[in-house]
């Protein structure tokens, strides 16, 4: 799980994540080839004691999930068609527990209790039962679930918000360097959403990981993020990287602030323009080598 920062390899910079002109063409070389993202480049610095929070916005199909899954090293997005995805200076070779992922659809293991769901990663590492359960209980409490009542429940007895809490606990218990979240709160109602945003902010301060957070909600992106990435319509390119103030108040409160809303409107205008502008800002099957 650890990244040796010394020794062999191309370990020159202190970037936790780097995309070097990454292009992903699905079904490359076949008639149904489709370029999802094109020439995406960015870097996220590895700041000590402070992971950066990156929100990703973009029209549907602009390649947000593709970027996240490239980072996670999951098929069929991995490997990129061209370019390099570097994590801590090394090319991503496949999935690993150093990059935790929370999906939009609830992926709690239905056959495991909340406790065993949260302890899953530790179990895979061979941590003893008493130790992993103790840690799992800690995390269950930390994500705002009831250790006594909820730990023994099965996922089918939980609400959507509770399931996402389990998913977050299950990921964070492993202390990943990078947390990838693909519209994790997309299926929750607004009230639950605020709660989860507040929870995420407090947890994120605790674990100090770099977070990539895909969302459709501009408010959510601006509230949570240090930086907001805006992708163009398909094939996705990285259009803007907008620095935004970090969350310093509870979600429901800060999102009513006029300065906050000003920022939201700015970004919404950019997105609206993308939505309504005629398609063809890029060649749909276009795959150009530079």
């Amino acid at each position: 799980m650890d990244f040796p920062f010394s020794g062999t390899g191309v370990m020159t910079q202190s970037n936790i994540v780097e995309f070097r002109s990454v292009t992903k063409t699905y079904n490359f070389g076949r008639p149904d080839a489709f370029t999802a993202i094109q020439q995406v480049s960015f870097t996220v610095e590895d700041l000590r004691d402070h992971g950066e929070f990156i929100s990703i916005l973009g029209p549907s199909g602009s390649g947000k999930s593709t970027i996240l899954r490239l980072l996670a090293g999951l098929d069929p997005q991995h490997p990129p068609t061209s370019g390099t995805v570097l994590v801590a200076g090394r090319p991503v070779t496949g999935p690993g527990a150093d990059r935790g992922m929370v999906f939009q659809d609830y992926t709690s293991f239905d056959h495991r209790t909340v406790l065993d769901n949260v302890a899953f990663g530790l179990e895979c590492r061979g941590v003893s039962k008493s130790e992993r359960y103790a840690k799992a209980r800690e995390w269950i409490a930390r994500v705002g679930l009831d250790v006594q009542a909820d730990a023994v429940k099965y996922p089918h007895e939980l609400s959507g918000g509770m399931r996402q809490r389990v998913a977050i606990a299950r990921t964070l218990i492993l202390h990943p360097r990078i947390i990838l979240m693909d519209e994790p709160f997309g299926a929750l109602d607004p009230h639950n959403r605020y709660q989860m945003q507040d929870l995420l902010v407090s947890l994120w301060r605790h674990v100090q990981a770099t977070v990539f957070f895909v969302t459709h909600s501009v408010e959510e992106a601006v509230y949570l993020g240090d930086r907001v990435f805006v992708l163009s319509r398909s094939p996705g390119t990285l259009l803007h990287q907008i620095a935004v103030p970090p969350p310093d108040r509870p979600a429901a409160e800060m999102q009513r602030d006029p300065a906050f809303q000003q920022k939201v409107f700015e970004i919404r205008d950019i997105l609206e323009q993308l939505e309504t502008s005629p398609r063809g800002s890029g060649n749909p099957a276009g795959f150009e080598r530079s």
Partner: peptide
């Protein structure tokens, strides 16, 4: 997605089959 979740939690292939 269950397989992918397990992969991102560090499970090996055999562990994914069994667990």
């Amino acid at each position: 997605r269950y397989v992918e979740t397990a992969l991102t939690l560090g499970a090996s292939r055999l562990q994914i089959i069994v667990k």
